[in-house]
Design a protein around this nucleic acid. Structure first.
Lengths: 334, 334
DNA sequence: TTGTATGCGTTATCAA
DNA sequence: TTGATAACGCATACAA
């Protein structure tokens, strides 16, 4: 078994209390005993057990992060930001993946709340039910949502309407007026607020430029894969509509698929058809032509979520919404 | 504060022991009290606190996973495998990123071991020092290393020699004999066993085909970025050597950079120069021409690491090495 | 079938 | 400046 505070106490000839105080750097212990205790701590390679400490302190120094999958690029970039902010703190993160099984979400959130007892919960692209939010509030445990927002919790998000707006505005100013849109699910259990907000930005930009909205030009996709990009071009071109541009609000990977399929159909990008993606992932600068896309400061959002979590934990802040601004990164595809 | 076992006990009019036994489904409690207790548990929304439970049981139901960064594609894919295997268990993972700061690694491993007290440690692409391994062994805590291997710990790896061998063998059989190699650091603190094993496979394949080894054709790179691929072509072509192929053992992203730079130099891929990558990440099927590459069953390795961890925790297995076989995925670049 | 007593590793309160 | 005692939430050996 591991060395405990008691072992140290016995070895030095003091009580556990004294050792505990030395461990925590309490100034009331004399220099001489402090030194003796620290020497034995080093020799016996003692370190405090967080479990015991958590139990008595009622604090776990853990931030829980929940999302569907930790394996997509957006989440990975968020986590990079999270990691970078976590270093100077003595907090750790515990990850919880729902894996898209929404029936089990409530159960998972309760297990986190009552079982694991983190000091804050950060949700990425998922939204706890109102009931769960109520239970977290009752326990005084702050909840932060990245991307989604809900009554009673803090939010870190990007202005999706604006992101879509600046992309479509740019296309129109380039002389395009038959602009298609590929976007995530607008309704149903897999839908998020994002898709609808981006659709609104798209419509607003069209309206502003006096272009009528044609639902035949909008295509919903389920995941954010390359293959769905390929497939969405196939399906859009079967419809009764023409296109001189496609704004892919469903991410750069799908946009890459769109470029590929367009090229296979002998359409020149951007001469015959302009394409704009969303997210500004690394893939955007690798495809040919390189992809004009809407950048979201994802790394910064990860960092902001930890800052906010710490402020909420330390009661320096109450419920708050942080909105980041997207920017258009102009490359070669539009 | 949250509901505890005591609150339930008081509400029902039994002792905490009885409630504890009901929670764990002990058959010794009568059906009638079991029912009463369960009713109140539901009403008061009670759930066992893992901290308390861990302290007394000496088990945390946590597997620690440590690596440099969780944000690269290889690690992400490992984590996907890990997540997929974790569902039916009641184990969770805690992530620890060293962020490449190797001086602090020992300290981190000790904090994990003595502070967080997981039941197993999985290291991805990093290798604990012999001293640390000794301490983990002393505590009876199994360590699994993915990619790296070391004395005294279990390993999940891919046959790197074979991966390089099949790639180079394929190139030679295609009539190439001036084959360059781009590979990770072969020595120094950032080096791994991987790079050297792949170099050996490269040399073995050349030898087998009677081609002499020319160190001028080998180029070391530090990270696995697209930019390094671009840069490595620049540097290789400044050397006193010719090339009709490049085997990029430093991953597909770097290989994509090599393709790009080769094309910029008006070299046709694969007519003038064949290129083979490593890892078979999604990028391999997106670049033009699509990339011939060495596939590693990364997802499966993640899954295997959890299976192995569970077996080690449950003493069904002692130290063990699992070696996966790479395969060559032939696409258009070679 | 249920309750009593004790302990897991740590910290906090109060007393010496 | 240090120590004795109790407590955090839970599980378990043993007693009743």
């Amino acid at each position: 078994m591991a060395v405990t505070i008691k072992d140290i106490a016995k070895a030095v000839g003091v009580t556990p209390t004294t050792v505990s105080m030395v461990v925590r750097g309490d100034k009331r212990i004399s220099a001489s005993t402090t030194e003796k205790v620290q020497k034995v701590i080093k020799e016996m390679n003692y370190r405090p057990n967080y479990i015991g400490r958590s139990l008595v302190k009622g604090r776990t120094n853990v931030i829980a992060i929940a999302t569907g999958f930790f394996s997509n690029m957006f989440t990975v970039e968020i986590m990079r930001g999270v990691e970078s902010k976590l270093i100077p703190t003595n907090y750790r993160v515990n990850q919880y993946a729902t894996r898209g099984i929404s029936e089990k979400e409530d159960e998972m959130f309760r297990e986190i709340l009552y079982g694991a007892r983190p000091e804050a919960l950060i949700c990425i692209s998922i939204k706890p039910s109102a009931e769960i939010i109520g239970e977290y509030q009752k326990e005084g445990l702050p909840v932060i949502s990245i991307e989604e927002s809900a009554e009673g919790i803090s939010t870190v998000k990007v202005d999706n309407e604006k992101g879509a707006f600046i992309a479509v505005d740019f296309l129109v100013k380039k002389g395009r007026n038959k602009i298609g849109m590929v976007v995530g699910k607008l309704s149903g259990c897999l839908s998020g607020a994002n898709a609808n907000e981006r659709l609104k930005g798209y419509k607003d930009a069209l309206t502003m430029h006096g272009i009528s909205y044609n639902p035949e030009r909008v295509m919903e996709v389920g995941d954010y894969s390359f293959e769905e990009g390929v497939e969405s071009v196939n399906r859009l071109f079967r419809r009764d509509a023409q296109f001189d541009a496609i704004f892919c609000a469903a991410g750069d990977m799908t946009a890459a698929g769109i470029i590929r399929r367009a090229q296979e159909k002998s359409l020149r990008v951007p001469e015959d058809i302009s394409i704009i993606g969303y997210d500004d992932m690394i893939i955007a600068s690798i495809v040919q032509p390189t992809l004009t896309t809407v950048n979201q400061p994802v790394f910064e959002m990860g960092r902001a979520s930890i800052d906010l979590a710490m402020d909420l934990i330390n009661k320096k802040e109450t419920q708050k919404t942080i909105t980041f601004q997207p920017t258009l990164v102009i490359r070669a595809s539009a």
